[in-house]
Write a protein that binds this DNA or RNA. Structure first.
Length: 492
RNA sequence: GGCGGCGUAGCCAAGUGGCUAAGGCGACGGUCUGCAAAACCGUUAUUCCCCGGUUCAAGUCCGGGCGCCGCCUCCA
C-alpha cells in the first residue's frame, strides 16, 4: 500500500516516497501575523494537520515546520494604525493563532520559526545568491534576478515574457527586470530594521521560507504546502531562490489546498464577508468546523454558509450519539448467551473493514471526503449492532460493541475527530446551547417533572403541550424506559 | 487576454472505464412509542450540464458547446 499525492509541480498524482526512508520533511507556509485568522486559514491548517496525522499514522516520522511571517508591509501598516510596535502586533496575532489552533485540535509543528529570529540565515542566503550571480543590489535593496534562473515560471506554469509586459514597477524600485522580486528591502524612515551588508532593512517575504526551511529541513523538502494562492508568486519565488542557491531540487511534492468561499463568493476584506475562526467557535464545537473542512477534498473549493455548519452539527451528533449508546449497551450485565443475528454479523463485518477502507481513501491523495463516508458506514453498522443487542440481549454483543466503538474512535481520531468522551460531548453541547437560550438545566428538569406527572395521570394533552412548548425553543424531549431525556436542536 | 478548476438527487458531497452511481443533511413511508423523538429498515439520480467521438463497455478518456468560479496585485 502506498500513498499517492497530487503534485502541483507535475499536475499529477504520484506515489509518495520520502527522500529518506520513513522520515518526512514537511513545510507549510504559516500566517502573516497582522490580523485574526479566518476560515480560510482554518482550512489550510486543518487539511495539513490531517496530512501530518495520517503520515504519522502510517508510520512515518514527520519533521513538520510551519513558519510565522512576523515582519512585512501589512504588519507595519497595521501596527501604525493601532499605534503599537510591529513586534507587539505580531506577538499578539501569533498568540491568537495558537489559541485558534489549540481549539481546533491542530497539532503544533515540530518547530514554528519566526522570520525575525532568522535574519542572520536570511542574510547568508542572500549573500550566496549575490555571489552566484542570481541577485543584485540596487540602492539599499537586493533583488533576485528572475532571468538568471531558467526554470522560473515552471511551478505556476506562467509565461514570463507575457507577464513581464504587464508588470508594474512601484515608485522607487530599481529593478533590472520588472519580474525581479525583493530579497532585502531598505528601511524607510521609522520602519523596523536590521543591519545587513546592504544597509539597514528587512527581508522580503519569500526569502524567509527558503532560509528557514533549509535551516530546519535541509535543501530538499519532501512536502511543501500552502493555499492555492501561494503558487504564484510566493512558491515560484521560493523555488527559484532555493534552487539557485543550492543547485538541488527544493521540493519533491508541492501540495496546495483550495479556497473557502462564503455563500459562493470569494472571501475578501473588501467585500467584508470573511468570517474568523473565533466567530465560528463561539457558536459551534471545534470538531464541527473540522468535520466541515474535511468533508470535501482538500483541492476543491469549499463553500461556507451558516446552514452547512448546522447540518454538520447534526452529522457529528449522530456519531457521538451512536458511540454513547453503544458504550452503554456494552456495559449492561447480561447473562444470556444467545447467538448473534445475521444483521449483527453483517455489521461486525462492516466494522472489521473500516480501517482498510479508511486507509484506501486516505492513501489516494488524502481523500478525507471519501474516508468520512466510510466512517459513517461504520456509525450505521454500530447503531445496527446496538439495535440487535437491544432486541435480542446476549452477552456475546459486549465485545463486538466495544470493538466497534474503538475502531470508529481510532479511525476518526486520525482526522482529529471524535476526540471527546461521547457522553461529555453530548452533555456539554446541550448545556451550552441551553445557556444561549438563557436557561439552566434545573429549569428544564422542573418542566420535565411536571410533564412526567401529567403522563403518569395519562393527561396527554398537558404532556404534549409542555413538550411542544419546549420544542418551540429548540429543546427536544425523548421518552425512554429509564425516563425522559432532553436534547437541543443545533443552532446556526 | 493568459493559466487553472468545476458542473453528480431538494441541498452538501465521493466516485481508480466494467458488479445495484459512496456518505451526510432534508423529505416521505414502516418498526418502536400514549403520541412523539432517537435508532433501525425502506423510498428519494433508469442517470451524472448539452452535443458528438473512442471503446465490447464512459459520470469516468478525447473534441466541441453552454454555465459557474479562481489565479494572473497582498492573500490560506
Amino acid at each position: 500500500m502506498t500513498i499517492k499525492i497530487y503534485n502541483t509541480f507535475t499536475r499529477k498524482k504520484e506515489v509518495f516516497e520520502p527522500l529518506s526512508s520513513g522520515y518526512v520533511r514537511m513545510y507549510v507556509c504559516g500566517i502573516t501575523a497582522y490580523d485574526r485568522c479566518h476560515i480560510g486559514h482554518a482550512r489550510s491548517a486543518v487539511v495539513f494537520d490531517a496530512v501530518l496525522r495520517y503520515l504519522r499514522y502510517r508510520g512515518f516520522e514527520v519533521n513538520f515546520i510551519r513558519n510565522f511571517t512576523d515582519i512585512d508591509d501589512k504588519i507595519i501598516n497595521r501596527s501604525i494604525e493601532e499605534g503599537i510596535s510591529s513586534e507587539a502586533l505580531a506577538d499578539r496575532e501569533i498568540r491568537h493563532f495558537s489559541q485558534d489552533m489549540d481549539a481546533l485540535g491542530v497539532f503544533c509543528a515540530t518547530k514554528e520559526p519566526r522570520a525575525t529570529e532568522h535574519i542572520q540565515e536570511i542574510i547568508e542566503l542572500i549573500e550566496i545568491l549575490i555571489t552566484k550571480g542570481h541577485a543584485y543590489t540596487s540602492g539599499g535593496d537586493v533583488y533576485f534576478s528572475v532571468r538568471s534562473f531558467s526554470g522560473y515560471g515552471t511551478l505556476s506554469r506562467r509565461n514570463i515574457a507575457e507577464m513581464r509586459a504587464g508588470a508594474r514597477i512601484a515608485v522607487g524600485e530599481e529593478k533590472q527586470d520588472p519580474m525581479d522580486f525583493a530579497l532585502w528591502k531598505a528601511a524607510k524612515p521609522g520602519e523596523p530594521k536590521w543591519d545587513s551588508p546592504w544597509g539597514p532593512g528587512r527581508p522580503g517575504w519569500h526569502i524567509e521560507c527558503s532560509a528557514m526551511s533549509m535551516k530546519y529541513l535541509g535543501p530538499t523538502l519532501d512536502i511543501h504546502g500552502g493555499g492555492l494562492d501561494l503558487i504564484f508568486p510566493h512558491h515560484e519565488n521560493e523555488r527559484a531562490q532555493s534552487e539557485a542557491a543550492t543547485g538541488k531540487t527544493f521540493v519533491r511534492f508541492w501540495m496546495h489546498n483550495g479556497f473557502v468561499t462564503i455563500l459562493s463568493e470569494k472571501m475578501s476584506k473588501s467585500l467584508g464577508n470573511f468570517i474568523t475562526i473565533r466567530e465560528i467557535l463561539e457558536k459551534h464545537h471545534p470538531e464541527v468546523l473540522r468535520l466541515f473542512l474535511l468533508s470535501k477534498h482538500y483541492r476543491s473549493p469549499l463553500d461556507y454558509s451558516p446552514d452547512i455548519l448546522m447540518e454538520t452539527t447534526c452529522a457529528l451528533d449522530r456519531c457521538y450519539t451512536a458511540l454513547s449508546e453503544a458504550i452503554h449497551l456494552a456495559e449492561r450485565s447480561i447473562k444470556k448467551q444467545r447467538l448473534l443475528t445475521y444483521e449483527a454479523k453483517e455489521s461486525i463485518e462492516t466494522l472489521d473493514h473500516l480501517k482498510n477502507r479508511f486507509e484506501y481513501a486516505m492513501d489516494d491523495d488524502f481523500n478525507t471526503a471519501q474516508a468520512i463516508g466510510h466512517l459513517f458506514d461504520g456509525v450505521r453498522a454500530l447503531n445496527r449492532l446496538g439495535q440487535e443487542a437491544e432486541k435480542r440481549p446476549s452477552v456475546l454483543y459486549a465485545e463486538p460493541l466495544k470493538f466497534g466503538v474503538q475502531t470508529i474512535q481510532d479511525t476518526f481520531r486520525v482526522l482529529g475527530l471524535l476526540n471527546q468522551e461521547p457522553d461529555a460531548y453530548l452533555r456539554n453541547r446541550n448545556l451550552e446551547a441551553l445557556g444561549l437560550l438563557g436557561m439552566t438545566e434545573a429549569d428544564v428538569l422542573k418542566v420535565i417533572k411536571d410533564r412526567t406527572r401529567a403522563r403518569e395521570e395519562k393527561d396527554w394533552a398537558t404532556a404534549d403541550r409542555i413538550r411542544d412548548a419546549l420544542e418551540a425553543k429548540g429543546i427536544i424531549l425523548k421518552d425512554g424506559p429509564d425516563g425522559t431525556f432532553w436534547t437541543i436542536k443545533p443552532l446556526t
